[in-house]
Simulated assay, not measured.
Amino acid sequence: MITVNPYLYFNGNCEEAFNFYKSVFEVEFKYIGRYKDVPQAEKHIFQEEDNKIMHVSLPISSQITLMGADNTEVHKGNISHTNFSLSITADTKNEADKLFQKLSVGGKIKLAMNKTFWGSYYGIVNDRFGINWKISFETN
């Protein structure tokens, strides 16, 4: 089976963001590595020597792992979190409310959790790191 895992890039605050997501989803990191820990033989790929995150993985379900890194020379370019959303379908209405509430701390609620015309319980929040989240619970 093919899986798709979101990979998020940050401008130096990846660790802060992933500690936040760790508390939201109440799970532990599978891996967290820093650029300074890259073996000398691989420094030609990642030349950074600091505490920035080279890779972090956080399993948020049995099928999905949220991954991330700090933007560096290797990943040159502007970071924009405006052209996508992460969509989470909760198992219960209470779980949907809990995730939405936690993700909205310090962020901006775009659409409060509410029953929709298509039958879902649904809301949209932009978290304090600029990531768009769509939270839903299928009521049908």
Rank of each mutant, 00 (worst) to 15 (best):
M1H: 15
I2P: 11
I2N: 05
T3M: 14
N5R: 08
P6C: 09
P6H: 05
Y7Q: 12
Y9P: 00
F10C: 07
G12N: 05
N13P: 13
C14M: 00
C14S: 07
E15G: 10
A17R: 01
A17M: 07
F18H: 14
N19F: 00
F20K: 05
F25Q: 04
F25V: 01
E26K: 14
E28C: 04
E28G: 11
E28I: 09
K30Y: 08
K30W: 11
Y31S: 15
I32L: 13
R34S: 01
R34E: 06
Y35M: 03
K36Y: 00
V38N: 01
Q40I: 10
Q40M: 07
Q40Y: 04
A41C: 14
E42S: 12
K43I: 03
F46A: 01
F46H: 07
Q47D: 07
E48G: 05
E48W: 04
E49R: 11
D50N: 14
H55C: 00
P59V: 09
S61L: 03
S61Y: 12
S61W: 07
S62C: 11
Q63M: 08
M67T: 08
G68L: 09
G68P: 02
A69L: 05
N71I: 13
E73A: 05
H75D: 11
H75M: 15
K76F: 12
G77E: 01
G77H: 14
N78Q: 13
N78A: 15
I79H: 12
I79T: 15
S80L: 02
S85N: 14
S85R: 13
L86K: 11
S87W: 06
I88G: 05
I88A: 09
K93N: 06
D97I: 04
D97L: 02
D97C: 09
D97Y: 07
K98Q: 10
K98T: 14
L99W: 14
K102E: 04
S104E: 08
V105A: 04
G106N: 06
G106C: 12
G107N: 09
K108L: 11
K108T: 15
I109A: 01
L111K: 14
L111Y: 15
A112P: 15
M113Y: 04
N114H: 13
N114G: 06
T116V: 02
W118E: 11
G119D: 11
G119K: 10
S120D: 15
S120T: 14
Y121R: 08
Y122T: 04
Y122D: 01
G123A: 07
V125R: 01
N126D: 10
D127K: 13
D127F: 11
R128V: 05
F129E: 06
F129S: 06
F129L: 06
G130R: 04
I131Q: 04
N132G: 06
S136W: 00
F137P: 00
E138P: 05
